[in-house]
Simulated assay, not measured.
Amino acid sequence: MPLPDEEFSSPNLTVQQWNIGGTDLGIVWEQNPGQYGIFFGDSYGRNFKPFEPKPNDASGEWRCNFLAFSTDTDLEDGLSFSGVATDNKGEAREIIPGGKDKSGKGDWTSIPTAAIRANGKDYVHYFNMRNWRHWDTNYSGLYRSADSGITWGPCIDVKFSSNSYFGQIGYFKKDGYIYMIGTETGRNTPARLARFREKDIERQKRYEYWDGIAKRWIRGDEKRATVIIDDKVGELSFIYNYKYKKWIIAYFASARYDITLRMADDITGPWSEPYKLVDSKEYPQLYGSFFHPLSSYGDELYFLMSMWKPYNVFLMKAKLLKN
Score class of each variant (00 low, 15 high):
residue 118 A to V: 13
residue 93 R to A: 11
residue 153 G to P: 05
residue 134 H to E: 10
residue 92 A to L: 06
residue 159 K to I: 07
residue 81 F to D: 05
residue 82 S to Q: 02
residue 137 T to W: 03
residue 157 D to G: 04
residue 171 Y to E: 09
residue 102 K to N: 00
residue 165 Y to M: 09
residue 154 P to G: 01
residue 170 G to Q: 12
residue 154 P to V: 10
residue 146 A to V: 13
residue 104 G to I: 04
residue 74 D to L: 13
residue 132 W to G: 13
residue 99 G to A: 11
residue 171 Y to R: 04
residue 100 K to L: 14
residue 96 I to Q: 02
residue 86 T to M: 14
residue 88 N to T: 13
residue 136 D to S: 14
residue 137 T to Q: 05
residue 99 G to N: 09
residue 77 D to E: 15
residue 102 K to A: 12
residue 123 Y to E: 06
residue 153 G to F: 11
residue 134 H to R: 12
residue 147 D to C: 08
residue 97 P to C: 08
residue 76 E to V: 03
residue 158 V to M: 07
residue 105 K to E: 14
residue 88 N to F: 15
residue 98 G to A: 09
residue 89 K to R: 15
residue 171 Y to C: 02
residue 132 W to Y: 10
residue 156 I to C: 05
residue 119 N to E: 15
residue 107 D to P: 05
residue 168 Q to A: 11
residue 86 T to H: 03
residue 142 L to W: 06
residue 109 T to P: 00
residue 75 L to Y: 06
residue 90 G to P: 05
residue 75 L to W: 05
residue 90 G to D: 09
residue 79 L to V: 02
residue 151 T to E: 01
residue 129 M to N: 11
residue 83 G to W: 04
residue 146 A to E: 15
residue 135 W to N: 10
residue 110 S to N: 08
residue 160 F to R: 04
residue 165 Y to C: 11
residue 122 D to G: 13
residue 107 D to I: 00
residue 152 W to K: 03
residue 122 D to L: 14
residue 147 D to Q: 01
residue 159 K to G: 07
residue 108 W to G: 01
residue 149 G to T: 10
residue 122 D to F: 00
residue 155 C to W: 02
residue 143 Y to E: 00
residue 142 L to D: 07
residue 130 R to E: 13
residue 162 S to V: 00
residue 129 M to G: 08
residue 150 I to Y: 05
residue 152 W to S: 03
residue 138 N to I: 12
residue 168 Q to S: 10
residue 166 F to H: 00
residue 154 P to H: 06
residue 170 G to W: 09
residue 152 W to L: 01
residue 126 Y to H: 12
residue 167 G to D: 00
residue 96 I to Y: 08
residue 86 T to R: 09
residue 95 I to A: 01
residue 77 D to V: 05
residue 143 Y to V: 02
residue 145 S to H: 04
residue 174 K to D: 10
residue 134 H to G: 15
residue 116 I to H: 10
residue 105 K to T: 14
residue 150 I to E: 15
residue 115 A to C: 14
residue 151 T to I: 01
residue 163 N to H: 12
residue 124 V to L: 06
residue 121 K to M: 10
